[in-house]
C-alpha cells in the first residue's frame, strides 16, 4: 500500500482514514491513533487509576486495534470500537491485579439495612464550588475507585463519557437492563459514599 503523507492525512475524515488503514496504509493508522489516543488514555486513567497502567492500556489497545482493524465493519463509531477493545483490556488488567469485577466490598457489619439515609440535607447547588475542595475531590476519586471493576466501567462509560445504555450493552456484551441496573447501583453506591462528606453525622445508607 502506498503510504500517505501526514499533512494530507490530517485533513481526511475518519472513515477515509479507516479505509486506508484497513489496506495497511500505516500512516493513516497512525493518524487514527493520534486522533483517539487522548480519549483512551483518559479512560485508562479513570478505570485503572494510575499513569503507568493507563499508558500500558493505551499501547495494548492500539496494537490490538491494528491487528483487528481488517475485521472492523463500521457498525459502530470507530471510537466506540476502540473503547470496546480498551475496556476488555482493562478487565484483564483488573483480573491480574485481583481487583473485584462485580462484587461489592461490604464495609458495614450492622444488619439493620436502611434503604437510604433518612433526613439527609439536600447538599448544595454549585458542583464547581464543591470541587474547589480538595477533600471532596479525593473522596470522589476514592469512591469511584472503590466500585467493582465492571460497575466502575459502566459508570464511567455512561455518566462520564456519555455513552448510551445500548452502546454500552454492545461494548460489554451485556443486556440493556443489566447495564441500566448497574448504572443505578453504581450511583447509589457513590451517593452513599459522598453523603458522608455532605452530612458527616448521618449514618450511610445500604447499597440498594
Amino acid at each position: 500500500m502506498e503510504q500517505s503523507s501526514s499533512k494530507a492525512l490530517a485533513l481526511l475524515k475518519e472513515n477515509e482514514l479507516i479505509e486506508r488503514a484497513k489496506s495497511r496504509d500505516n500512516a493513516a493508522f497512525e493518524e487514527l491513533v493520534k486522533r483517539n489516543q487522548a480519549k483512551i488514555y483518559n479512560l485508562g486513567l479513570k478505570l485503572l487509576g494510575n499513569k503507568e497502567d493507563a499508558a500500558d492500556l493505551l499501547q495494548e489497545t492500539f496494537i490490538n486495534a491494528y491487528y483487528a482493524l481488517p475485521k472492523f465493519e463500521g457498525k459502530s463509531a470507530f471510537s466506540t470500537w476502540l473503547y470496546r477493545i480498551a475496556t476488555n483490556n482493562a478487565f484483564m488488567k483488573m483480573r491480574k491485579k485481583k481487583i473485584p469485577l462485580v462484587r461489592f466490598e461490604t464495609e458495614r457489619s450492622d444488619s439493620s439495612r436502611e434503604e437510604f439515609s433518612l433526613g439527609m440535607s439536600d447538599w448544595s447547588n454549585d458542583p464547581g464550588a464543591h470541587l474547589r475542595n480538595q477533600e471532596l475531590k479525593l473522596l470522589i476519586e476514592k469512591s469511584i475507585n472503590a466500585l467493582p471493576g465492571k460497575y466502575k466501567t459502566i459508570f464511567v462509560l455512561h455518566d462520564i463519557e456519555g455513552f448510551s445504555t445500548e452502546e454500552i450493552s454492545k461494548m460489554l456484551n451485556l443486556s440493556v437492563p443489566a447495564v441500566k441496573s448497574r448504572v443505578h447501583r453504581s450511583r447509589v453506591f457513590l451517593r452513599d459514599k459522598l453523603s458522608s462528606y455532605f452530612q458527616p453525622g448521618v449514618k450511610q445508607g445500604a447499597n440498594l
Binding site: 489516543q37 487522548a38 488514555y41 483518559n42 486513567l45 479513570k46 493505551l58 437510604f116 433518612l118 433526613g119 439527609m120 440535607s121 439536600d122 447538599w123 458542583p127 464547581g128 464543591h130 470541587l131 471532596l136 475531590k137 470522589i140 476519586e141 469511584i144 459508570f155 455518566d159 462520564i160 450511583r187 447509589v188 457513590l190 451517593r191 459522598l194 453523603s195 455532605f198
Partner: peptide, 27 residues
C-alpha cells in the same frame, strides 16, 4: 426522603462528571 434521595443522586452524577471534566490529561 425520596425527594432528597433523587436530588442527591442527581448531584452525585453532576459532581463526578464535573470532577473528571476538569481532570482531563494529555497523553
Amino acid at each position: 426522603d425520596c425527594l432528597v434521595f433523587f436530588h442527591t443522586m442527581k448531584k452525585t452524577v453532576t459532581l463526578s462528571r464535573t470532577y473528571y471534566k476538569k481532570k482531563c490529561c494529555r497523553v
